[in-house]
Design a protein around this nucleic acid. Structure first.
Lengths: 112, 112
DNA sequence: CACTATATCTTGATCACCAAGATATGGTGG
DNA sequence: CCACCATATCTTGGTGATCAAGATATAGTG
């Protein structure tokens, strides 16, 4: 699972959202670092719906504009939990290997 | 940065390794979940070398077989640290949204 | 009156990755 | 002694998620 997909599932984890709402929530979640493109978003939603990880929710019309909501499914939540655990282990492995401050000093002899 | 690339940099973070050694170390790091394919590995090493994140190290011949070693560069270590931080934040965000045990119970009213 | 924000979706291209195989040496089991 | 597995390199062809860009439409703002 790649970063945009992970963040889409994360954004849906606590409540149903519509496409544009996902773009803003993913941007907020990632502190502005991930700007979801429409091509990525709608492609991912279709794919995730096919896989049963998200489902269409209600539709609303607000100010003459359609809002099409999506929600995460139980399978989607399981997938997100599994992916989160996977990432957590990778973070732990990398952190252990990198050492506290880094640089060649740590790996070699040093503080003689 | 995707999972195989992240694990290659992680495997190189503490010591220089050759291609086949990376395959076994990445498998060990990921507890058997990531089996690096040669196509992925050598493609990634070439790309990372072009980007200056890894560099060719020494070469050895052991039992008539060539071992070509790669090491992580300072830029590579910086990139790995940045990526690790990024993942750590995403894990934290997902964990917060998912809640302790999960299910619709947590999101809604419950424990009345 | 132009621009920005909100809202949907499509199309074409890229690129990391995967699957599979080619090539070669050395050790092991039958 | 021969097949097979582990070690070790690299190539080729395909897939698929993502990106870049644009099409379409309404409502609010300067």
């Amino acid at each position: 699972m790649r970063e945009p997909t992970f963040l889409i599932l994360t954004a849906l984890a606590d409540e149903a959202r519509h496409g544009y709402g996902l773009i803003t929530e993913v941007s907020r979640l990632s502190e502005g670092r991930v700007a979801l493109k429409p091509g990525t978003l709608y492609g991912a939603l279709d794919r995730l719906a096919d896989e049963g990880l998200v489902a269409r929710d209600r539709e609303e019309v607000v100010d003459g504009r359609l809002r099409r909501y999506y929600r995460i499914t139980p399978d989607g939540e399981r997938a997100l939990r599994a992916e989160t655990d996977r990432m957590r282990r990778h973070v732990a492995a990398a952190t252990a290997k990198l050492g506290p401050i880094g640089g060649a000093t740590q790996a070699g002899v040093s503080f003689a």
